[in-house]
């Protein structure tokens, strides 16, 4: 990890310049940010997020999707789903946005050493997990099996497709992709991503699972992992709620007794199992 310090005032957005902006999918894009002249970068850990501020429009929480070992190359992958993210989709090289962070709990990448690791993700959920994957691959010798199970809507909606193909080409990890529907031009898996779990081979007593995706997908993934013999305390999920202050003051992202921005977004599943299926939360 980099020795760079975290930013000081958590409520004060710092200006960051867009070094590069590119489209990932029809509604999804990535921004590579660098600090404005004179400003410092900061260290972060896989799974953390930043609050990105589009001046004059608003602020949104976005997971960091780059490599935490290279914190100066700060990458965020964003899906245009509303006013702020729509505006961000129009940003180009040289434009400036505000940034606060990093916030939240990370994936427990160091604690997983010696274990098999199963990563289950779908849609844009791969973005918050990519820094963890980079860490695992950079420290490959410290882990047992590494299995990545990724689900997308159609073959055209596969995020980071080139990287998934590259990872799949390695001899030391297993990558399976499934789509919800496809035509004859797709020769891969079709079906929901939790179905891939029963086909994966790992040692359930010595496996840690990381999950990020739509909550209903995480719900069925946890079920499938439990059936495969992985206990809740070895399952970590990244939750998404309406984060505003990102420091646990405003209560917008309250999740039972937790604040997702401060106590999460990454939770050990046994800590939230009781509230995970409560509809009102």
């Amino acid at each position: 990890m980099s020795p760079l310090p975290a930013l000081n005032d958590p409520m004060l957005p710092r200006p960051f310049r867009i070094e590069r902006a590119w489209r990932e999918l029809s509604d999804t894009f990535s921004l590579y940010l660098v600090p404005q002249k004179g400003a410092k970068g900061f260290a972060y850990r896989p799974g953390q997020f930043n609050m990105l501020y589009q001046f004059g429009v608003g602020e949104v929480p976005i997971s960091i999707s780059g490599d935490a070992a290279e914190p100066l190359k700060l990458v965020h992958t964003i899906r245009a789903v509303g006013t702020v993210t729509d505006a961000m989709a129009g940003l180009k090289r040289g434009d400036v946005i505000g940034l606060r962070g990093p916030f939240g709990t990370p994936w427990p990448v160091e604690k997983m050493a010696g274990q098999d690791v199963v990563i289950i993700t779908g849609g844009i959920g791969l973005a918050p997990l990519r820094p963890a994957i980079y860490h695992l691959l950079a420290n490959r010798e410290k882990y047992g099996k590494i299995i990545i199970l990724y689900g997308a809507r159609t073959p055209n909606d596969i995020l980071y497709r080139r990287e998934l193909e590259k990872w799949r080409g390695r001899f030391d990890i297993s990558v399976e992709v499934s789509v919800d529907r496809a035509g004859h031009d797709w020769a891969g898996n079709v079906g929901v991503v939790p179905n891939l779990i029963s086909r994966a081979v790992f040692d359930p007593l010595h496996t840690t699972a990381l999950i990020c995706g739509p909550e209903i997908m995480m719900h069925y993934s946890v079920k499938a992992l439990n059936t495969a013999g992985i206990r809740d305390k070895r399952i970590f999920v990244s939750m998404e709620r309406n984060m505003k202050c990102a420091t646990g003051f405003c209560g917008h992202c309250q999740y039972g007794p937790h604040f997702v921005c401060k106590d999460g977004p990454v939770f050990r599943f046994d800590k939230i199992r009781k509230i995970f299926s409560v509809r009102e939360i």
Binding site: V81, T83, G123, D180, V192
Partner: peptide, 19 residues
């Protein structure tokens, strides 16, 4: 049947528009 229901939810489709 459960898998088909989950597929029908189209969980990766366009979400409710927000931020």
């Amino acid at each position: 049947l459960t898998s088909s229901r989950l597929q029908m939810l189209d969980v990766y489709g366009s979400p409710k528009r927000g931020g």
